Simulated scan of single mutants.
Amino acid sequence: MTSQTIEGACAFAWRNYLLLHNGISENDARRSALYRYVVNLRDTGEDDFDLLQIAAVAYLKKLDELHDDRSARLAVDQILAERLESRIAQPVTSLQASNTKRRSEQHGRQIR
C-alpha cells in the first residue's frame, strides 16, 4: 500500500467529518490522530482501501463519542474484527479467506 492510499482514506473521512462539524479547523488535533490510527492499521497489515476508509470514518465517530483516543481505537478495532469475521462467512476463494482471517487475527491481537 502506498502513502496515497493512507492519505486517501484519511482525506475521505476528514472531508466527511468537516461537512458534519462546522467550525472545526482543518488543522484540528483529531486529523493528526486519525492519520496515526490509519497508519497504525496499515502497520498491522491491513491493506484493503475500503476497509481503511470505513475504519477512518468510524474512528472519528468513536473519538467524538468517547472523547479518548485509546477507547476510540479499541472500539473501532472491535468493529473491524467483526467485519473481517463476517467476510470469512461469505463464499470466497481459499486464498481470500486465508488473507482475511490473518488480518482478523492481527486485529484481535491488537485489541487485547
Rank of each mutant, 00 (worst) to 15 (best):
Y17I: 00
I79Y: 10
V38W: 01
Q106P: 02
R73N: 11
D43P: 01
L18M: 12
R15F: 08
F49E: 00
R42G: 02
K61S: 10
H67G: 07
I54K: 04
C10G: 03
L60K: 00
R70P: 00
H107L: 13
R87T: 08
E46H: 06
L41C: 07
Q53I: 07
E105C: 01
L19T: 07
Q53E: 07
R15H: 10
E65Q: 08
R103F: 04
R42E: 00
T93L: 11
R102P: 06
N16K: 11
A97E: 13
M1R: 07
A81T: 14
R70A: 07
I6K: 07
S86D: 13
R73E: 09
L95G: 05
S86V: 02
N22D: 15
N16G: 10
L60D: 03
E46F: 04
L18W: 06
L84N: 08
A33W: 01
H107W: 15
Y35M: 03
A13M: 11
T44P: 00
E26A: 10
D47Q: 14
S3E: 13
Y17G: 03
S86Y: 08
G23L: 11
Q4S: 12
E85C: 01
S71D: 10
W14H: 08
G8I: 00
I54V: 08
A9H: 07
L20R: 15
Y59W: 13
L84S: 12
G8D: 01
T44F: 13
A29G: 14
Q106Y: 10
E65G: 03
D28T: 05
Q106A: 15
A11Y: 05
L52H: 00
K61I: 05
A89P: 02
L51Y: 04
Y17C: 01
L74F: 04
Y37V: 00
S86G: 02
R31L: 04
R109W: 13
E7G: 01
R42A: 06
L74W: 03
K101Q: 15
Y37N: 06
Y17H: 12
S86E: 14
Q96S: 11
D69W: 10
R70L: 07
N40W: 12
Q96L: 14
G108N: 10
D77R: 02
H107S: 06
A72I: 03
R87D: 15
D43A: 10
N27Y: 11
L95M: 05
F12E: 02
A72W: 02
T44D: 08
R73T: 05
A58S: 15
S32I: 15
V39D: 04
L34C: 06
E105Y: 02
T100D: 09
G45A: 07
Q106I: 09
S25Y: 09
L60P: 02
R30K: 12
L51M: 07
T2G: 06
I88Y: 09
M1P: 03
V76S: 01
R112S: 12
L34M: 06
L74N: 09
Q110W: 14
K101I: 10
Q4R: 09
S25L: 06
V38T: 04
S98Q: 14
R31H: 12
D50Y: 14
Y59K: 02
L60W: 01
R42H: 05
V92M: 15
T2L: 05
D43L: 12
L51A: 05
R102W: 11
R103Q: 09
A72Q: 09
